[in-house]
Nucleic acid binder design. Structure first.
Lengths: 123, 123
DNA sequence: CCTCGCTACAACCATACGGTTGTAGATTAG
DNA sequence: CTAATCTACAACCGTATGGTTGTAGCGAGG
């Protein structure tokens, strides 16, 4: 399995910033399920079309989404690989956390076993 | 295994916004690896201590991190469960994407089977 | 052609963000 | 007690964000 190039800091900034808004997450979700035009998307929300355009642009800058012309419409497509990369990063955080939790558990278990009188730190 | 309560929209906003900054991601990473005080953290970055305090506060509002007093220091701890929940959401997006990709692949495969004329792939 | 619908883009506004400095409250060290 | 350290919080500043309205460019249809 080919390991995807990890995201740069700037790309991560853009991806997480794009995800930090409920409207944009909803747009992403709709883009995943089916393909809608920008104006079709805008009809789902109680805000102006340009506002939705901007949200789509934010998702596009984060490469979570791409636009493709179809006639006079601009269809919004989701980009699964970018989502996968964000997942990969968060998985790393989680893995580190779990590893650390295990390490601490080990230390505590060892301390419990060794646990004689005092608390000596070995050089 | 108990399934954790999914995050509310507001919580997601805060989590992803917190992750949308390289400094905060670094602080989170350090909090996962070991436990450092706020001022200790601030020494890693070329910005003032109050700036780092604010970053920690953002992580804290997102519940990615908690602070616990130890003497006159405020130690920053990572909160693994919150990271896990963010992972869960992104996994959902990814799963939906993969499912949809499979569905499309099925449709295309069916079209291929129905297309009698030429280029037949034998099952 | 002309018109209509979808899109794009600029200008503007209020608010939030990320940083700074400065002041003040706790807590440990001496 | 005094001094030093860590923290908290307020005020301020420049810039970015998220929304609006208005204008203009394309593409399809009559």
């Amino acid at each position: 399995m080919v390991v995807a190039r990890p995201l740069t800091e700037g790309e991560l900034d853009r991806v997480f910033h794009a995800l930090a808004d409920a409207t944009r997450r909803d747009i992403l979700s709709r883009a995943i399920h089916g393909e809608e035009s920008v104006s079709a998307l805008s009809r789902h929300y109680s805000m102006s079309l340009p506002a939705v355009q901007k949200h789509v642009a934010v998702l596009e800058r984060a490469a979570l989404v791409t636009k493709k012309r179809r006639g006079r419409e601009q269809i919004v497509h989701a980009n699964g690989s970018m989502i996968a990369k964000a997942v990969a990063l968060l998985d790393q955080y989680e893995a580190l956390w779990i590893e650390r939790a295990d390490r601490i558990a080990d230390v505590l278990a060892a301390a419990d076993v060794l646990a004689p009188a005092d608390e000596g730190e070995r050089p």
